[in-house]
């Protein structure tokens, strides 16, 4: 391998961080208030809901699939908890029911993908409508204003850091340990790289798929709860299109849409913070609201561009056959 190519790979690996740094500096230059510690913490708080659903999305992307139903599931789980709360059920029960909803819905996605062998895109596109439909029925398409108690959850602080950030940190730590330090985690990467090969190697691919979609469901539900706790209400459009923001966050952070590549930490975390920083920066600098969709388009384009650039570089790497000096070096113990 030649040195420039090595450098290019390193640059591509560092691209999410460089992009984040550039965004922070750019908005900071326009509005000094943007870089104030309070606002930076605010960005983290705002990013926590997106970050949590993006972690689940990353797990699914790693298997080579996608979970388009995540946004609808945020809505359904939040709807379930709201429905229970408004009928006087205790808060812990409402929260547990919301999380259970997420897991069950995720399991359904996973079973359809792994056992019935339907395409993830199609399965989760269908359940995108299904979960929202069930949610709309449950809420009678009315916005629900939730009791004070749930708002207090989001406002709670531990060591000066708001609860949503702690929850995000917990989800990230859990997913990171599972992905990098457990056999199951490494098998996710194998299954995502080549499902048939993984099956031949004795990897329980079906179980991995089910687990990944269930985890994504759980993350979507948790993300929904965090967002609801921040907003205090569930509107009929709640969570709508969040799956795309989650995909963009994961891919910006280095996850491949073709499976087998990506990290939740630092990758997806950086992606989520990056997207939220842009949104926050546009608000803080008082940018024209009509600019927002254009910026979103640019972000998604950047994400896909990075993904394909990484893939091209890897392919070139695979093609390399002549042994240059660089390889001799790695050959020595």
């Amino acid at each position: 391998m030649t040195a420039p190519r090595n450098l290019r790979l390193k640059l591509l690996d560092a691209a999410p961080l460089l992009l984040l740094a550039a965004v922070l500096l750019a908005f900071g230059a326009v509005s000094p208030r943007f870089l104030a510690p309070a606002n930076l913490l605010q960005i983290l708080v705002q990013a926590s809901s997106l970050g949590i659903v993006a972690v689940g999305m990353t797990l699914v992307l790693l298997t080579g699939g996608v979970d388009l139903s995540a946004g609808s599931l945020m809505y359904l789980s939040a709807g379930v908890s709201g429905w229970l709360l408004l009928r006087g059920f205790p808060l812990p029960l409402a929260l547990a029911a919301a999380l259970a909803t997420g897991v069950i819905a995720g399991l359904a996605n996973g079973l359809l993908v792994s056992r019935v062998r339907l395409m993830p895109f199609v399965v989760t596109l269908a359940t995108l409508y299904l979960w929202r439909g069930v949610g709309l029925n449950l809420t009678q398409t009315r916005a629900m204003n939730l009791p004070e108690g749930i708002l207090r959850l989001a406002a709670a602080r531990l060591a000066g850091v708001p609860a949503p950030v702690w929850i995000l940190a917990g989800v990230l730590a859990g997913a990171h340990v599972v992905l990098t330090r457990t056999q199951f985690g490494r098998q996710i990467y194998a299954a995502g790289n080549d499902a048939a090969g993984a099956r031949r190697a004795g990897v329980p691919v079906a179980r991995i798929l089910v687990a990944a979609y269930a985890a994504s469901g759980l993350c979507a539900a948790l993300s929904g709860l965090v967002a609801v706790a921040q907003l205090g209400a569930v509107s009929p459009t709640f969570g709508s299109q969040r799956e795309f923001a989650a995909i963009a966050a994961a891919v910006l952070g280095g996850a491949s849409l073709f499976g087998g590549r990506g990290t939740v930490f630092p990758g997806t975390l950086i992606g989520a913070v990056l997207i939220q920083a842009i949104e926050n920066g546009l608000v803080v600098t008082g940018a024209d609201p009509y600019l927002f969709p254009l910026i979103t388009a640019a972000v998604i384009f950047a994400a896909v561009f990075l993904d394909s650039a990484r893939r091209r570089n890897l392919e070139n790497l695979h093609r390399r056959k002549v042994r240059g000096p660089a390889v001799q070096e790695t050959s020595s113990p």
Binding site: V177, R181, Q183, R186, N193, D194, V203
Partner: peptide, 27 residues
């Protein structure tokens, strides 16, 4: 082989040596 994994991960993909940390079977 899985090119996205390391040599050692490929060797032990279905049988990593493990130790329990906080009850979790970590590699």
């Amino acid at each position: 082989l899985f090119p996205n994994l390391t040599i050692s991960e490929n060797l032990f993909l279905t049988g990593f040596p493990r130790r329990r940390v906080l009850g979790l079977p970590l590699i």
